[in-house]
């Protein structure tokens, strides 16, 4: 009997073999560019002057990584990116939660027109604001500062909309009960609405963080001081600074990628779960 069930298990596994084949094949294709980057980041420079390319680093040159770390102040760039992305994320979540609460739970004159005014900001393409915003930051003497990097992005119509939809799905009775208990709006928001909306807030936060971390044009425009550069600008700068040492550029790229990769691998289940909890419905 045990032998028969073991046989059945083996048979089932055999049936799954094509699926595993597909999974492995797809994984290989998805990972291939990164794999080649790691391989090439360990090659001596002379390898880049030969064809065909090598698929394995036969004599790994670990000093490429040291060269990348000394060529640009990578830890500093990482810290800048982290500060920038964190401030933007916190700012977006706070401003969006406040505004969404007002639209979902409060009564005040011009509520609907105001909501449409919020939504209308999504129709203003980001391109149109680059030049005037740059001039504003310049006039405030905010070039090369964290406020120059972050303040223009602290409010989000998209996030407000997302959270309002979620808040509206919460039972109205909660609000009535809170009113009877004499909760103020802020207390109700913080002690009832926020705990019930963790998933939606997390989704917004992840989305905001990724977008902020990946910002490129804005940091390129508002930072001149190398101490204020973000990782993204750092890689591009490394790319042009070490144009003759491709291996070093790739090593720097891997170093810049690692923290985010660890974050994604560590939070992979959480990322999906945060979205599963109904954040996108409504």
């Amino acid at each position: 009997m045990t032998r028969r069930s073991a046989g059945r298990a083996a048979l089932r596994l055999l049936a799954w073999l094509p699926v595993y084949g597909l999974l492995a094949g797809s994984a290989a294709v998805v990972m291939f560019p990164l794999y080649m980057t790691v391989v090439d980041s360990l090659q001596p420079i002379a390898k880049f002057l030969t064809f065909p390319p090598d698929f394995w680093p036969h004599t790994p040159v670990w000093s490429n990584y040291r060269a990348a770390m000394t060529s640009i102040p990578m830890p500093r760039y990482m810290a800048n990116s982290l500060i920038m992305a964190t401030v933007i994320t916190v700012g977006e979540v706070v401003t969006a939660a406040l505004a969404a609460y007002a639209f979902a739970f409060m009564r005040f004159p011009f509520r609907t027109p105001l909501f449409f005014l919020f939504l209308s900001t999504m129709m203003v393409p980001w391109e149109i604001s680059i030049i005037p915003n740059f001039q504003t930051i310049q006039r405030l003497n905010w070039l090369d500062t964290y406020q120059g990097l972050t303040v223009p992005f602290l409010a989000t119509a998209f996030g407000t909309f997302l959270l309002r939809q979620h808040f509206m799905s919460l039972p109205r009775e909660l609000k009535d009960a809170a009113d009877i208990d004499g909760y103020g709006d802020l207390r109700f928001l913080l002690s009832v609405v926020v705990p019930l909306s963790r998933a939606a807030l997390a989704t917004l936060a992840v989305f905001a963080f990724l977008q902020a971390w990946n910002q490129y044009l804005w940091p390129l425009l508002v930072t001149n001081d190398p101490n204020m550069r973000t990782v993204q600008i750092g890689i591009a700068s490394l790319q042009s600074e070490e144009v003759q040492r491709t291996n070093v550029v790739l090593a720097g790229t891997i170093v810049a990628l690692l923290p985010m990769l660890v974050l994604v691998i560590g939070f992979q289940r959480f990322l999906v779960r945060g979205l599963t909890a109904g954040a996108l419905k409504g």
Binding site: A27, M31, Q232, I235, Q239, T246, T253, L257, L271, V272
Partner: peptide, 24 residues
Amino acid sequence: VVFRTIFSSTVATSVAVSSVVWLL
């Protein structure tokens, strides 16, 4: 889970990283 992680891993790559990777 391993495959899911691999498939979602490119979310960690930024525009600068992926451009440099593909440039080569």
